[in-house]
């Protein structure tokens, strides 16, 4: 694990940004040129949304991987987070501009359709996180920064719910995303028995 971590340390963060950003224009190009099938609006919307969920899961995996596996990806966590937000924003933009199109319909949908209300809430929760993903904000906010960024847990659950709520019939894929997110959040829970036990051992 040590050698993997050393190799990872040599990868510049900008490479992650570049690699993560590439699918956005590529998918748009495919949509323009027929590469996403005969209904490119829905396809582009779904692909951006899926990438956002995948990046969200990758970001949530950083801490458990370090704690339980010893793999250190902390250096890239901000890039993963910023990319997550970028794909959520693109997903939302495609929905607003290319899909629904009518401003009156957009507002009605946000209020009336639970899966859109849930998705919109997740976006709004991610907004302050994206805005504070810089060194100045981390210094400025101190401990409050860590608290603020716990909003990502709620946003992740809402994001998975958003997907689950829009599926027709009983489908496996949205459930798999939800399960992955719940598992990654569960790994963060302090395990009460163990901590009690170690406390007792300490005081003995």
């Amino acid at each position: 694990m040590q050698s993997i971590n050393q190799t990872l340390r040599r990868i510049p963060v900008w490479a992650i940004y570049l690699l993560g950003a590439l699918p956005a224009p590529w998918l748009f190009y495919l949509g323009l040129t027929g590469g996403l099938g005969v209904e490119p609006i829905e396809a582009l919307e779904h692909r951006y949304g899926e990438l956002a969920l995948q990046l969200l899961i990758a970001g949530l995996a950083v801490t458990p991987l370090r704690r339980h596996v010893g793999l250190n990806l902390m250096k890239f966590r901000r890039a993963i987070g910023v990319l997550t937000f970028a794909y959520v924003a693109l997903h939302l933009l495609v929905w607003l501009v290319l899909d629904v199109q009518l401003p009156s319909q957009i507002w009605a949908d946000i209020l009336k359709r639970p899966y859109i209300t849930v998705g919109m809430t997740a976006f709004l929760l991610l907004l302050p996180l994206a805005l504070t993903s810089n060194n100045w904000s981390v210094r400025r906010l101190g401990l409050r920064w860590r608290k603020l960024h716990r909003l990502v847990y709620a946003a992740a659950l809402l994001g998975a719910m958003h997907y689950l709520l829009l599926a027709k019939g009983f489908q496996i894929e949205p459930l798999a995303y939800l399960a992955a997110i719940i598992a990654l959040l569960a790994l963060r829970l302090p395990i009460p028995n163990l901590s009690l036990w170690s406390n007792r051992a300490d005081s003995a």
């Binding site: 323009l32 005969v38 490119p40 829905e42 009518l102 359709r113 899966y115």
Partner: peptide, 15 residues
């Protein structure tokens, strides 16, 4: 879960 007031005709492309 969605409005039925309008529809998208397949084949119109991205815009």
């Amino acid at each position: 879960r969605w409005s039925q007031a309008s529809e998208r005709e397949i084949g119109g492309g991205l815009f």
